[in-house]
């Protein structure tokens, strides 16, 4: 047995060449294809993982949005409730103010109407009293009534001081006329009695005229050229009416 060195060298070279050729025509193509397929699978896996990550991220976003929506809804409802409550309170306050103002206005109106009704009632009562007094006076004889009024006029004129009485007499001296106004015409005898007693009180030579004014109700008025002495009920009633109206205005 002998070792053939040339065969040994040839077989060594042959094997090296075979290894290179198989690498060129077998291993490299197959491995390249396997790597490509693995890369494709890995790419698909990565794409899938990316899609999964995207889906997870999108889900997280949706979840966050949903949470935000819920929170926003809660906040909106809360704000709306607070706003509604505030609006209701404002409206309630306004209504209370308006109701108060209306009640005050109503109270004032009622008070005014009550005052007006009261004044009207007073005026009616006054008018009624005047009517009643007029009717009652009509039942009293004119002579009796005239005597009372004349007594009162005399008493007044007697109570005047001298300068005042002289002033009245001076006004009548120059041809002035004293006009005596009564609510009803005086009988002839009563008129003469009035002339006599007024002349005694104011001086002789008086020119006296008698006149009637039903508005006087009762009593008489002495109309001098420059002054009027009122002893009628009209003046008293006017004073009362003025007092009543003044009371009404004050009320």
């Amino acid at each position: 047995m002998r070792l053939d060195w040339s065969t040994l060298a040839l077989q060594t070279v042959n094997f090296a060449v075979l290894a290179w050729l198989l690498y060129r025509f077998l291993y490299r193509p197959v491995l390249r294809m396997i790597d490509a397929r693995r890369a494709e699978v890995q790419k698909q896996y990565d794409d899938t993982a990316k899609i999964q990550a995207d889906v997870k991220a999108r889900l997280a976003e949706i979840e966050a949005e949903r949470s935000g929506i819920v929170a926003e809804r809660t906040a909106t409802l809360k704000a709306a409730a607070a706003q509604a409550e505030e609006l209701a309170a404002a409206r309630r306050s306004k209504a209370e103010r308006e109701a108060g103002a209306l009640m005050d206005a109503t109270r004032r109106t009622l008070a005014r109407e009550r005052e007006e009704a009261l004044a009207e009632a007073r005026r009616s009562a006054l008018d009624l009293g005047v009517d009643v007094a007029r009717r009652l006076l009509s039942e009293i004889p004119m002579e009796s009534r005239a005597a009372v009024w004349l007594d009162r006029i005399e008493h007044y004129l007697a109570g005047l001081d001298e300068p005042r009485r002289r002033e009245i007499g001076t006004a009548l001296d120059g041809g002035g006329v004293l006009r005596v106004v009564t609510a009803a015409a005086l009988p002839e005898g009563v008129a003469a009695e009035w002339r006599r007693r007024l002349a005694r009180a104011l001086g002789d030579g008086l020119d006296i005229e008698f006149d009637t004014d039903p508005a006087l109700v009762a009593g008489a008025e002495l109309h001098f050229p420059h002054a009027i002495l009122r002893f009628s009920w009209r003046s008293a009633l006017d004073a009362m009416r003025t007092e009543i109206e003044g009371h009404d205005n004050a009320g």
């Binding site: 053939d4 040339s6 065969t7 040839l10 077989q11 042959n14 094997f15 060449v17 075979l18 050729l21 198989l22 025509f25 077998l26 193509p29 197959v30 294809m33 490509a36 397929r37 494709e40």
Partner: peptide, 30 residues
């Protein structure tokens, strides 16, 4: 250089393997 039967057989094996590999791998598909 003496060419022995082992060398010739090896060449034949090389030809067979390389040719077979080339034929088998020329149309690889995914």
């Amino acid at each position: 250089v003496a060419i022995t039967s082992a060398v010739v057989t090896t060449w034949a094996i090389m030809l067979l393997l390389v040719l077979g590999s080339w034929l088998a791998t020329r149309r690889l598909r995914p």
